[in-house]
């Protein structure tokens, strides 16, 4: 549904997006994850037709964003980072305006439908300026959805609203992901983990890692095991664990040890066997999952040229 082909964008000398390529299937929620200034907003602005790419292109529902801009714009619902509003319009007037401007069929009934969907119908005659920040965010989503676009592009939709509203927005996005292809940017890692089917980690305009949140955990970060051993002196057990092939590092933690593996293979069997054959007992052993946060930092560190790009930051 979205197919990005080596998309690049310069601002003067600064390379904001560098040869980005990715795809999103129909009904997929794709997360763009990266620190501020990583190129998330620039990428989204190019896909929505607000900024022309310096080079490369992208297809939205088989339409080229450069050659066929108007057709792609019809197929996208966009929620910018800051929801722009006309303060003097009513809630209904605002959504209806966007519906009409985007050529929605039966704009009025469609408007009422999305207002009901986002619980704004009871406030349809309220002036937009009187809405709270969370409600404005919902209004932004209603606006993006009113013409029923196959693709939704949401730029950090959970910034600056309270935790209750964040949860609401996340639930809404998850629900929408069943029918729409969603490109969703965030710099909050747990959010990407919770919502997205697939995550692209970008930094300095390049993809540094991608995959499902589960895949990323496997691929990038070495697996860790927490092991608690009954019997034996600490130093002896540590030496024993260290001697197992595939173990990179052993450190003491609480009442047990944290064992890091070098490769991405399951060491639990090997660990328990050697402990038992040395005459000790295994009290506890479990694999410790790395969080997306760890993955993120590891990915950024591992990416070549990550340091070089820093000077050019805006």
């Amino acid at each position: 549904m979205i197919e990005v082909k080596s998309l690049s964008r310069h601002y003067g000398d600064f390379l904001a997006v560098d040869q980005l390529s990715f795809k999103a299937k129909q009904g997929e929620i794709l997360g763009l994850l990266g620190p501020n200034g990583a190129g998330k907003t620039t990428t989204m602005r190019m896909l929505t037709g607000y900024l022309p790419p310096s080079s490369g292109t992208a297809l939205i529902d088989h339409h080229d964003i450069v050659r066929d801009s108007v057709e792609t714009r019809k197929r996208i619902g966009y929620l910018p980072e800051r929801v722009p509003i006309y303060p003097d319009m009513t809630v209904r007037g605002y959504v209806l305006f966007w519906a009409q401007l985007r050529g929605t069929k039966e704009a009025k009934s469609r408007t009422d439908m999305v207002l009901k969907q986002f619980d704004l119908y009871t406030r349809k005659n309220t002036l937009v300026r009187h809405l709270s920040k969370g409600l404005k965010q919902r209004l932004g989503l209603a606006q993006a959805l009113v013409h029923d676009p196959p693709v939704l592009i949401l730029d950090e939709p959970t910034i600056g609203i309270d935790p209750q509203q964040v949860i609401e927005v996340r639930d809404v996005v998850k629900e929408l992901g069943k029918q729409h292809t969603i490109l969703f940017s965030t710099h909050i890692l747990t959010e990407a983990e919770e919502i997205c089917d697939r995550v692209l980690i970008i930094d300095h305009g390049r993809i540094v890692a991608q995959g499902t949140p589960q895949q990323l955990q496997k691929e990038i970060y070495s697996t860790q095991y927490y092991v608690q051993v009954g019997g034996g002196k600490t130093a002896d057990v540590r030496a024993l664990l260290q001697s197992i092939s595939g173990v990179a590092e052993v450190s003491a933690e609480k009442d047990g040890f944290l064992v890091k593996s070098t490769a991405n293979e399951d060491l639990r069997a090997a660990i328990s066997t050697s402990i038992v054959s040395a005459g000790y007992t295994v009290l506890e052993i479990h694999q410790r999952r790395s969080t997306l946060e760890d993955i993120f930092l590891a990915a950024i560190k591992a990416a070549p040229g990550a340091q070089a790009g820093k000077k050019a930051k805006r």
Binding site: R45, T48, G49, Y50, V70, R73, K74, I76, Y78, P80, P84, I85, Y86, W98, L101, R102, G103, Q143
Partner: peptide, 9 residues
């Protein structure tokens, strides 16, 4: 608002 206007058809 111009951003939304220019990204509409």
């Amino acid at each position: 608002m111009m951003e939304l206007l220019l990204t509409s058809p």
